[in-house]
């Protein structure tokens, strides 16, 4: 087979030894006789078998008929259960009690703190906060902050750089970056 001149030249520049080796006629490894003539039949047989298995599964495992129930019917029957009524009542009592315990005197919405006031409070009472709570707060702030840096480098520039430094780039790094 005639070798591509450009590829041969490229190889010559990297390794004359391998370029010389490449010029020799290299035989392909062998394949069983008639392999390429039978591969098509094997593929069609496999596709057919898969299709049959799939349709067999569909025909032989019918889904059991499910009676149609509208969502309104479902909600209605659920609300009519006595357990649901009792649970609702208990939840309402619990929420009311909790509200009294948490906000004994101040109504929600009346307290408006500025950023500065919060910072001042934190500074004055820094010892009162656990380290993990402070770290948690910091990581949330960092997550919200826009710290992305946009690198406007052309693919062509990256390629040019890689080509110029071809021998110096860590091959393991190349393997990982794919």
């Amino acid at each position: 087979m005639k070798k591509n001149h450009h590829i041969q030249e490229e190889l010559e520049n990297i390794s004359p030894f391998l370029a010389h080796l490449r010029q020799e006629e290299i035989e392909n490894p062998k394949v069983p006789d008639g392999y390429f003539e039978t591969i098509e039949d094997n593929i069609w047989a496999r596709i057919k078998a898969e299709d049959e298995a799939e349709s067999w599964g569909k025909v032989n495992v019918p889904s059991s008929p499910v009676p149609k129930v509208t969502w309104l019917q479902r909600v209605k029957s659920w609300l009519l259960c006595p357990q649901v009524g009792v649970s609702f009542a208990l939840v309402l009592v619990a929420v009311f009690a909790l509200n009294i315990l948490v906000n004994p005197t101040v109504e929600e919405g009346n307290i408006v703190l500025t950023e500065e006031e919060i910072d001042e409070y934190l500074e004055e009472n820094i010892d009162q906060f656990s380290e993990s709570l402070l770290l948690e707060g910091m990581s949330e702030e960092l997550a919200d902050a826009d710290i992305s840096i946009e690198l406007n480098i052309d693919d062509a520039d990256i390629d040019a750089y890689l080509e110029e430094n071809i021998g110096e780039i860590d091959p393991n790094l190349l393997e990982e970056t794919w």
């Binding site: 390794s15 080796l21 990256i158 890689l162 071809i166 190349l174």
Partner: peptide, 23 residues
């Protein structure tokens, strides 16, 4: 292969060098 041309050239270069060393 969804990889840049530069990365491919560099990979080929390293592969050739390794094969040469092995042989």
């Amino acid at each position: 292969l969804n990889t840049s041309v530069g990365a491919l050239k560099a990979s080929y270069h390293h592969a050739v060098k390794k094969i040469e060393a092995f042989l």
